[in-house]
């Protein structure tokens, strides 16, 4: 399924870019993230607990960042496994500064597999969109609080 959207952050582009590359921010922004470790540059391992209906469960996730073009865009590839199945996401994240705000645009594909693909299919795309939107909203919030401090 396609996941696409944008969030406007009241901060400059460099601050947003730094937030998007800071493991602490990523951890806070990722819904249900209990642990997030940088295992190599631009490569993270995380433990995520989701509590939303059909995708409820504990996931082991791998997040990798590719095609980095500072401070404008990168590609984020996420793979999360649980006993209920897997979630995969592949999205291009782009920043666009228009004083005084920065727009985060994301456009990608999410794939759900295994048991969760078949359970409550009708609500799944809604959940995926909500999770992603939530992630970028939190990034926005974290960026703002960092730029204020």
């Amino acid at each position: 399924m396609n996941v696409k959207g944008e969030v406007i952050v009241d901060a400059n582009q460099i601050d947003v870019w730094n937030a998007l590359n800071d493991p602490e921010v990523l951890k806070k922004a990722t819904p249900g993230c209990k642990v997030l470790n940088e295992i190599a540059p631009d490569s993270y391992k995380a433990e995520i607990v989701l509590g939303i209906a059909a995708v409820r469960g504990e996931y082991e996730a791998e997040i990798n960042i590719f095609e980095k073009s500072e401070p404008n865009r990168y590609r984020l590839v996420m793979k999360a496994d649980s006993n209920m199945g897997f979630l995969e996401g592949n999205a291009v994240v782009e920043l666009d500064y228009n004083h005084p705000n920065t727009t985060i645009r994301y456009d990608g594909e999410a794939q759900v597999g295994g048991l969760i693909a078949g359970v409550g299919q009708r609500i799944l795309s809604g959940i995926a969109k909500m999770i992603v939107k939530d992630f970028f909203k939190k990034i926005a919030k974290e960026t703002k609080s960092r730029s204020v401090s």
Partner: peptide
């Protein structure tokens, strides 16, 4: 019975 293009089964319960 519906599969997505990647072969994921989208109708695995009697809800769907």
């Amino acid at each position: 019975i519906v599969y997505d293009r990647q072969g994921q089964l989208l109708t695995s319960t009697l809800m769907d």
